[in-house]
Each structure stands twice: as structure tokens, then as C-alpha cells.
């Protein structure tokens, strides 16, 4: 499969009063056409920042360095005009919190139509009929009526579908979903899974980047998994092999901490992102750590996967 988007040596640092937070510290990652890539990491690992940086949606007090190649261009070098043509049209963002991501005073139908009107230049009537079709496709029925309603008349799950409808309305090539199951009950997760599967049904060749730390969700949806820890990508594997045989010690520990696998805690605390330790950042918590780990390992190939760990040298 071809690469749709390639991230090369990306550094994203936040310049705060308390210091420089190295949220993303040298990341290389690629998203292939038509695949579902799950970016897994804890809070503070930098995964959301990575997603936001692809769309240049970061605040102004950041330092960004590196390349994000999409469609032959480096997204980080494009002007504001050009990036706006890509945002929402070719790369869509489905945000985290359905409650606050919709404008409460605009009809839902209008909000879903907005990207189409902006990017595809559709007139209101054409856009509206497309909106109705989309809402119906994602299970919001009766679509005609619901499109004229306001966000507060929708439940959380329905709002999430609306957000997804908004995201897919312009037929983007890449959809980035930020923590789609955050705060959602275990029993409602099925709806989220079905929602994303539905996107696939509609467009086989769209690429999905799911940013999450919900491992069971990733297991059901992902083709490939990329694990982030403290600003670094530490493992990239095929989904099947990842859950059966995780390579990086952090991946192993993460899976072991799931309730279904014994709830084994990872000892220690995550290091600070202001002054991260030298070398491998998982050092202090790793059961397999050795003296080599004082130096940051490069990526090593291990079958279909790549791991950032000296054990695979």
C-alpha cells in the first residue's frame, strides 16, 4: 500500500513559563492509503499533539520542526490559505468531545453542510440533500427532521455521529479521530466501533488515524498500531501481531495492565516532559533495561514491525 502521509523527524515543543515541554520529540511515522492506524499512548505521550500538528491546529507558542509530507507537499511549509484548503477537505478532524464541539446555536444540518459548502462549493440545496443522505447513512433518523434540529436535542452518541458525518462529508482522504471513546461507557463503545466501520463501508480507500488509549477499541478497528511514549513512537506493528506478541517492553506492560489481562501495573511514574531523561525514556520502568539503554535506541526491524528498543538490535 502506498503512503498517504509521511511524518519525518517531527519535533513539537511547547514554550511555557515553566519550561519547554517536548511533546513530540523526533517522530517518524507514515499513514498508508486505506488503512486504519491507531495511535496509542497515555495522556501526555504527545499523541493528540501529533494529530493536531498534521492540521496545523496548534497554538502559537509552539516550536515545530520537521516535515509532514502529504500529497507531495510539506504541510508545515504551506501558507495559511493553502492549509485551509486541505483542512476539512482532504484531511478531516473528528474532535474529542461531542458535547462542546458543535455550535449550539446552529442547526445540525447546517453544521454538517458547512464543510461541503466551503470546500466543494455546493449550493445550499444540493448540500442539504447530501446532508440528509449522510445523516441517514450514519443512523440518524428520520434524517430530514433531525437535520433541522439543534445539538442539544441530540444525545452524546448521536452528536458523535454528527461530527463524523461532518468529517466525511467532503470525502477526505484522511480522517483523524481524537479519542473517540473518551468518557464513553463500556456498553456504548459498540456504537463507536460500528460508526467507524460504517465509514469504511462507504469509502474503502479513506485512511483513518485513530488517536486513543483505548486498547480494546484499537484491537477491533486497527490495521496497524503505533505506540507512543513520552514524545517518541516506540513501536509500529500490524494489529494482529501487536496484541498477540507486543514487542516493546512498554507495549507489553501496557497490555498487561488491562483488566482482561490481569491488571498488572507498570511500576514507577511517567517522566516529566519538560526535562525528559536521556536515552530510552522507558528506562526506569522497564524490566529488561540494561546499560545500553542510556543511549536512545534507533528503530530496529522485527518482522513486519519496527521497534525502538535495544533488545531487537
Amino acid at each position: 500500500m502506498d503512503n498517504l502521509l509521511v511524518i519525518e523527524d517531527l519535533h513539537v515543543h511547547f514554550l511555557l513559563n515553566s519550561g519547554r515541554v517536548r511533546a513530540v520529540d523526533g517522530v517518524n511515522l507514515s499513514v498508508k492509503k486505506g488503512e486504519t492506524l491507531c495511535l496509542i499512548g497515555e495522556s501526555g505521550s504527545g499523541k493528540s499533539v501529533l494529530g493536531l500538528s498534521m492540521l496545523r491546529l496548534l497554538p502559537s507558542n509552539v516550536y515545530i520542526n520537521g516535515r509532514i509530507i502529504f500529497d507531495g507537499k510539506n504541510l508545515l511549509e504551506l501558507g495559511e490559505e493553502e492549509i485551509r484548503k486541505i483542512r476539512g477537505k482532504k484531511i478531516a478532524w473528528v474532535p474529542q468531545n461531542p458535547a462542546t464541539s458543535l455550535n449550539p446555536v446552529l442547526k445540525v444540518g447546517f453544521q454538517v453542510a458547512e464543510p461541503m459548502i466551503l470546500h466543494l462549493g455546493l449550493d445550499k440545496t444540493r448540500a442539504w440533500s447530501k446532508v440528509v443522505k449522510l445523516l441517514d447513512f450514519f443512523g440518524i433518523r428520520p434524517a430530514e427532521k433531525r437535520a433541522s434540529e439543534y445539538p442539544h436535542q441530540f444525545s452524546g452518541g448521536m452528536r458523535q455521529r454528527v461530527l463524523v458525518a461532518m468529517g466525511t462529508s467532503t470525502n477526505p482522504e484522511l480522517i483523524i479521530a481524537d479519542e473517540p471513546t473518551k468518557g464513553i461507557d463500556a456498553s456504548k463503545k459498540v456504537q463507536v466501533v460500528r460508526l467507524f466501520r460504517r465509514i469504511r463501508e462507504e469509502r474503502e480507500d479513506v485512511s483513518l488515524l485513530l488517536i486513543t488509549h483505548d486498547l480494546p477499541l484499537a484491537r477491533v478497528l486497527a490495521d496497524r498500531i503505533a505506540v507512543m511514549y513520552c514524545g517518541h513512537v516506540v513501536e509500529v506493528s500490524e494489529a494482529k501481531t501487536f496484541f498477540e506478541e507486543p514487542l516493546h517492553p512498554y507495549s507489553k506492560a501496557l497490555l498487561d495492565s488491562l483488566p482482561s489481562r490481569g491488571l498488572k501495573p507498570i511500576k514507577g511514574f511517567s517522566p516529566s516532559m519538560v526535562n525528559p531523561p536521556e536515552g530510552c525514556r522507558f528506562r526506569d520502568r522497564c524490566d529488561f533495561c540494561s546499560s545500553r539503554c542510556e543511549e536512545l535506541p534507533p528503530f530496529f526491524d522485527a518482522g513486519q514491525s519496527t521497534v525502538r528498543c535495544w533488545m531487537y538490535a
Binding site: E42, S43, G183, H213, D214, L215, A253, L254, S257, L258, L263, K264, P265, I266
Partner: peptide, 14 residues
Amino acid sequence: TSMLDVSVQAQILR
């Protein structure tokens, strides 16, 4: 632990 990451959840529950 519903607001905590999976790995932290394990620590707190233990």
C-alpha cells in the same frame, strides 16, 4: 479510575 489512563488505572486499583 474512569478518568485515568489504563496503566495508571492498574496502579490505583492495586
